[in-house]
């Protein structure tokens, strides 16, 4: 079942045109053009310092692009932040107020959204989080905080999920449950942008790979196309081949 009407499904979920971003003299993004689509899991890969985090921050409105335009569901990224209502974000280092409980964190997020009711709570059950929600965050293990972060990302049935190293710190059972839920969200029409250094996760989940190097998209295509172009079966090897080619 799709979450969105058919006419919306035709336009890209995210459109990024000519995104440029510099910090001082260091040019991090040098003109990124990319669309993200509903019902598609896209892996954003590249070496350290390639500009992945900056691109994600521009998309989320955490950093402002120097040039270019970003639209999410047809709405321009602006300081108002209303376009973020249907975005779920899972940061690499999840952090919550130490002395609040998980349930209070969820209540806080609900209230800052004007009392919006959370959507499908199944991920909390799948990750075994329900029994941990009434404990102060400071008493939770790193893995449980990661589960809370996952629950927060999925809390309001987002149509766009931005996930930064989502399975880092999750035990194998929870990681598998998380990936199942991710596929389920994709099947329901959500667009997912994913970064991870766990290549097996990317191979198992992704429909499309964006390879970012020196602030530019150097490859945009399916996993099969990447394998064909590089002659490598393993994603890790394929990406290494891309980096070597660009360096040559």
């Amino acid at each position: 079942m799709m979450l969105v009407p058919a006419h919306e499904a035709e336009s890209p979920l995210v459109r990024m045109d000519g995104i440029e971003k510099s910090f001082g003299n260091h040019r991090v993004l040098a003109g990124v053009d990319v669309d993200l689509h509903r019902g598609e899991i896209t892996a954003l890969v590249g070496p350290n310092g390639a500009g992945k985090t900056t691109l994600i921050k521009c998309l989320l409105g955490l950093s402002r692009a120097d040039r270019g335009r970003i639209e999410v569901e047809g709405r321009t990224v602006d300081p108002d932040g209303e376009y973020r209502r249907r975005i779920g974000y899972m940061p690499q280092n999840p952090s919550f107020p130490d002395n609040l409980t998980g349930r209070e964190v969820i209540d806080l997020l609900r209230e800052v959204r004007g009392g919006e009711e959370p959507g499908d709570p199944s991920i909390r059950r799948l990750l075994g989080l329900e029994g941990e929600l009434d404990k102060p965050v400071r008493t939770l293990s790193g893995g449980t905080r990661q589960k809370l972060s996952a629950a927060v990302a999925f809390l309001f049935d987002p149509t766009l999920l931005v996930l930064d190293e989502p399975t880092a710190g999750l035990d194998p059972v929870s990681a598998a449950a998380f990936k199942d839920h991710l596929r389920h969200s994709k099947d329901r029409g959500a667009g997912i942008l994913l970064t991870s250094h766990v290549m097996s996760d990317l191979e198992a989940l992704c429909d499309r790979v964006l390879f970012l190097l020196d602030g530019r998209i150097r490859f945009d295509g399916t996993l099969d196309r990447l394998r064909d172009e590089t002659g490598q079966r393993a994603l890790e090897r394929a990406i290494s081949t891309l980096i070597s080619r660009e360096a040559a």
Binding site: G81, R84, R85, P91, S95, S149, V162
Partner: peptide, 10 residues
């Protein structure tokens, strides 16, 4: 880090 989470809300 939590401020980042809040900044990704509307």
């Amino acid at each position: 880090d939590f401020v980042l989470t809040l900044l990704t809300q509307p």
